[in-house]
Design a protein around this nucleic acid. Structure first.
Length: 800
RNA sequence: GGGCCCGUGGUCUAGCGGUUAUGACGUCUGCUUCACAGGUAGAAGGUCCCCGGUUCGAAUCCGGGCGGGCCCACCA
């Protein structure tokens, strides 16, 4: 048979197509089975899946497939996250345009068109790794459905007094020209210079250290610690700011650290968060030195229009030439940057929408504690984040491609008017405001141009997916069973979703959360394009197979980061081949067989072992420990089943002494092999589907192995356990002996004397004697006398 | 600075109070027409990071180091 090799390259795409056309994973609204609902992460449309995706989505898919076989009606939707800044970036790159320089509606149209173009290819990457989602339960975070839900959420949050608009200092990315939220910042170590600059107080010099001399024009006060003897007599006086010559008060506050710099610090609006605190506490004036585009404002006088970095250079030059720069010291310090573009963040005062939630810290901790975390320690990440919250959630973005705010403002008094809930989704830039008068009597309104933070929408995924199902089912689907996701976005997605669900519905959105780790390069470093250590799943799939990739992904625990090592994929490849061959062998002997009695001891033994394996792997799967389940199944398959059991029964299959000896083996085989395929089906869905259709479809009748029932453990036979262990030990000892003697495993042995050290030879062992003889190619097998405790240690004497 | 995770043969890993410390990859030595050379049998290879403690007994529990990683904070 030339074609009896397995070719995943042909087989896998075939099953992807089959599953889709036969709607194998369709969620059945009419089913009476208990529902297991999954809040699938919508991957950000970036053109391509990366290996980290392949890894973590495989892990959640293993869970979904397992639950399905356990009889749950699995609700497993799929969405793409294609709204907001990342999409703008992608489109700008692909189409070589700049959103800010285009007509807004034209850019939005281009984004939509581009998405339409690339989305199918993007989603097919997910299908290719065997995701068993119901792809008809599909959403895109920018479509009408999601816009409506997102806008509805905003309106409700406003109604309950949580959403507010305020002219306030906010984190700002000058490159993206938008406000951003705390979660979008990250810290980067950068080298900088500490500059000692001379201020004048009563004509005397006071030296102030700063890393940001370009903020001088925005200096509104100078602070020192109340107990600082060096500055005590200056409190209440005025300091003259160098170069700009405006006078600012010298104030006392405990937030000034006497040990830092010269102990006296300038307060600018705004250099950092302490500045904001002082600005609010002392009611200081607001001076904007930096404009939203990252350039200096008119306030900076002759430096106006310069970029921040250039202004810093120019101001330092001028300070130096005027003798006002006393000292410079090179330092490295952490700087807040925008995680998407690595641009240093400014704090700029502007009118923004916020969600008030800092008052809920205690509640947030309680809500988090109510979730079941897998692994459990991940809850600390969440707690840590909640405890460190410093800003209300800023949800407005000065961008173009996103969900619009359903808001207009009165032209006269700037009061907002909100869209009618029934009319959602709306786009204020296109749609007219509700036909109402403003409280001030005006009827003229201006549309809000800002869009919502992407997380304001993606934090609604439980509602987004649940509302894809018929109304009658929604109560059963929500709260959902599981949120699987990557651990690095606990503070983004998990946190925001939890908070919104509590605010809107008063309940947690899910019961369990499962956090996947991420994939590093072989040296344990995070993969990134700049390091050039990125491994692409497409390449992995081409070289190995989706099953091999899944075998690798299924081998590591939830929450564990793993280094990508190609050799791990080799193991998966080998497993697939071995399974193929073992199945081929087994079914070759099961053609036209009639089930009979399992009479032989080794057959009882393998069934007993299978029983154990099913029980253990099932309880591992139940707590999301799929890697442990895989370990258990794999060991059983490879050692017990292939290496030992199949060898033991070969002779009985090929040339049985009595027909019932063969029937016994066949019957055991007909139980073990299908069970094995099913146990592995969640992890390696393609090869198991292929084998199911090749050999089992006719008898089992279900359209796919993935909708078959999970195997039931057969009856255990305790008495076979010891015999099994000893027989395996005997085989091993004989193999060792033959190997030492450089003989073939099939070389005949006249008489095999088994000296059992410390082993009680029971009559049960005699029951295995025929299988032993056949497997060892021995004419006679004799057992020595055993004594005392039972171990598996066996001494072998081979007589030729 | 705070929190969390991790440290087991060359590499990756299982085990988490009593095992001759698991398995894979790699290495070496054999075997080979009857499922599988994409195979099979065997072998070599380990201070279970270090130091204390608890215990009859610790890779496993506790304390303290050292090293790596992640999250958060500070960012005068």
């Amino acid at each position: 048979m030339p074609d009896d090799k397995y070719s995943p390259k042909d087989s896998e795409p075939k099953w992807v197509q089959y599953w889709e056309s036969e709607k194998i994973f369709r969620f059945d609204p009419k089913s009476k089975s208990p529902i297991y609902s999954i809040d699938t992460p919508p991957p950000t449309v970036s053109g391509k899946m990366h290996i980290g995706h392949a890894f973590s989505y495989t892990q959640q898919d293993i869970v979904a497939r397992y639950k399905r076989m356990r009889g749950f009606n699995v609700f497993y939707p799929f969405g793409t996250d294609d709204n907001g800044l990342p999409t703008e970036r992608l489109v700008e790159k692909l189409k070589n345009v700049k959103g800010a320089r285009m007509e807004r509606q034209e850019f939005i149209r281009l984004c939509e068109d581009t998405l339409k173009e690339i989305r199918p290819g993007f989603v097919s990457d997910w299908k290719r790794i065997g995701m068993s989602c119901d792809f008809d339960l599909f959403y895109s975070t920018i479509n009408e459905h999601c816009r409506r839900i997102s806008q509805e959420s905003f309106l409700e949050l406003h109604k309950m007094g949580r959403a507010y608009r305020k002219d306030a200092p906010a984190l700002w990315c000058p490159l993206c020209a938008t406000a951003i939220s705390q979660v979008e910042c990250e810290d980067v170590e950068k080298s900088s210079t500490f500059n000692d600059i001379m201020f004048k107080v009563d004509g005397k010099d006071v030296i102030i250290a700063t890393t940001r001399p370009e903020m001088l024009p925005a200096c509104v006060a100078v602070f020192a610690h109340p107990d600082d003897e060096r500055y005590k007599d200056m409190f209440g006086k005025k300091a003259k700011v160098p170069l700009f010559n405006h006078e600012v008060p010298i104030l006392a506050d405990a937030r000034a650290d006497p040990t830092k710099g010269t102990g006296i610090v300038m307060c600018c609006t705004f250099g950092d968060q302490t500045d904001i605190a002082w600005y609010l506490a002392f009611n200081l004036p607001l001076k904007k030195a930096i404009m939203p585009d990252g350039k200096m404002s008119e306030l900076a006088g002759r430096y106006a229009g310069l970029k921040i970095a250039d202004a810093r250079k120019a101001i330092l030059e001028d300070l130096k030439s005027e003798g006002l720069l006393v000292k410079q010291k090179a330092i490295t310090h952490a700087v807040k940057v925008h995680e998407r573009c690595q641009t240093e963040i400014e704090i700029i005062n502007s009118k923004q929408w916020f969600i008030k939630f800092l008052d809920l810290r205690e509640d947030m901790l309680r809500w988090g504690a109510e979730l079941k975390w897998h692994p459990d320690f991940m809850r600390h990440r969440y707690d840590n984040w909640v405890k460190g919250l410093q800003w209300d959630w800023l949800i407005s973005r000065q961008r173009f491609f996103g969900v619009p705010f359903p808001v207009w403002y009165c032209k006269k008094c700037d009061l907002p008017v909100f869209a009618d809930k029934k009319k959602l989704p709306v786009d204020p830039l296109k749609d007219s405001p509700p036909a109402k008068k403003c409280a001030c009597g005006s009827t003229e309104f201006l549309p809000e141009k800002d869009v919502l933070d992407t997380w304001a929408t993606s934090s609604m995924t439980p509602q987004i997916v649940v509302q894809l199902a018929p109304k009658t089912l929604r109560k059963k689907l929500f709260p959902m069973s599981l949120r699987p996701q990557a651990h690095e976005i606990i503070s983004f997605w998990l946190f925001n979703t939890l908070v919104k669900s509590r605010l809107h519905y008063g309940v947690n959105p899910w019961k369990d959360v499962a956090l996947s780790g991420y994939v590093t390069d072989p040296l344990g470093e995070k993969m990134s394009k700049s390091k050039g250590n990125v491994v692409e799943p497409q390449v992995v799939l081409a070289k190995f197979s989706a099953d091999a990739m899944r075998f690798w992904a299924g081998g590591s625990k939830l929450g564990e980061d793993i280094p990508y090592q190609e050799k791990e994929l080799v193991a998966g490849d080998k497993f697939v081949t071995k399974l193929w061959n073992a199945a081929k062998f087994a079914f070759m002997h099961l053609e036209c067989f009639k089930e009979g009695k399992v009479s032989e001891i080794m057959d009882k033994w393998i069934l007993s072992r299978l029983s154990e394996v099913i029980e253990e792997s099932t309880s591992a799967f139940d707590v999301y420990e799929f890697s442990r389940a895989k370990f258990i199944i794999e060991r059983f398959f490879w050692n017990d089943f292939c290496d030992n059991y199949l060898e033991l029964i070969k002779t009985r299959l090929y040339e049985p002494k009595k027909p019932e000896h063969k029937t016994s083996a066949q019957t055991a085989l007909s139980i073990v092999l299908p069970a094995l395929l099913k146990l592995m089906a969640p992890i390696t869905p393609f090869i198991t589907e292929e084998l199911y259709h090749k050999y089992l479809h006719a008898s089992e009748k279900k359209p796919s192995i993935h909708v078959c029932n999970w195997p039931e453990p057969p009856k255990k036979d305790k008495t076979t356990e010891e015999v099994g262990k000893i027989v395996v030990a005997i085989l091993s000892a004989v193999r060792k002996k033959k190997s030492e003697m450089k003989l073939s495993m099939k070389s005949p042995v006249k008489k095999l004397v088994v000296e059992c050290k410390n082993v009680e030879v029971s009559c049960d062992l005699n029951a295995a004697i025929e299988d032993l003889k056949a497997t060892c190619c021995a004419e006679i097998v004799e057992f020595g006398k055993g004594k005392e405790e039972i171990t598996t240690e066996v001494k072998i004497t081979v007589e030729l």
